[in-house]
């Protein structure tokens, strides 16, 4: 399957997909190894490092850009993030990581209903124009 995507931050990445059933704040919600630690989050305990994270949007504190950018620097970040609507806080992390370190983590938007069709737990490839599985 292949669905069209709009890149907020470009690049290519692939990994096993994980679908988050609630929005996530990277700051306060994930630790330095890329694990969800927000006790209120339904997927608390899940590790996002190297995964293709499929979630509608980020949430909460504006410090999330730094936390995600640091995870990109230390290779603890998702391989790609597939959003249902633009989220500047998430995208900025990738833009800055590219400016500072030349590292790419694609952040893309896939409109509903296609966003809901992306399955969990399968190998997903993301580039600047599409999400494929």
């Amino acid at each position: 399957m292949r669905v069209a995507a709009r890149a907020l931050a470009g690049g290519a990445g692939e990994g096993v997909s994980i679908r988050l059933s609630a929005p996530l704040s990277f700051w306060g919600g994930t630790d330095s190894r890329g694990r969800i630690v927000d006790a209120h989050h339904p997927q608390c305990g899940a590790v996002l490092a190297g995964r293709v994270v499929v979630m509608e949007s980020g949430r909460g504190s504006s410090s999330s850009s730094s936390v995600l950018a640091e995870q990109i620097r230390t290779k603890a970040a998702p391989a790609a993030i597939v959003l249902a609507r633009p989220d500047a806080i998430v995208a900025l992390a990738a833009i800055v990581a590219r400016e500072l370190y030349g590292l790419d983590v694609p952040i893309v938007v896939v409109a509903t209903p296609h966003h809901e069709q992306i399955p969990a737990g399968v190998l997903v490839r993301v580039d600047s124009t599409a999400v494929m599985w």
Binding site: S32, S62, V67, A69, E70, R73, P86, A91, A97, L100
Partner: peptide
């Protein structure tokens, strides 16, 4: 990203980037 047609001039800023979240904060 946000589909802005233009930029707007601002009169003040409040900066949160001064909280240390690792090397990336300092590198920037």
């Amino acid at each position: 990203i946000s589909g802005a047609p233009r930029l707007v001039e601002i009169t003040s800023a409040h900066v949160d980037s001064c909280l240390y979240h690792g090397r990336v904060s300092l590198d920037f």
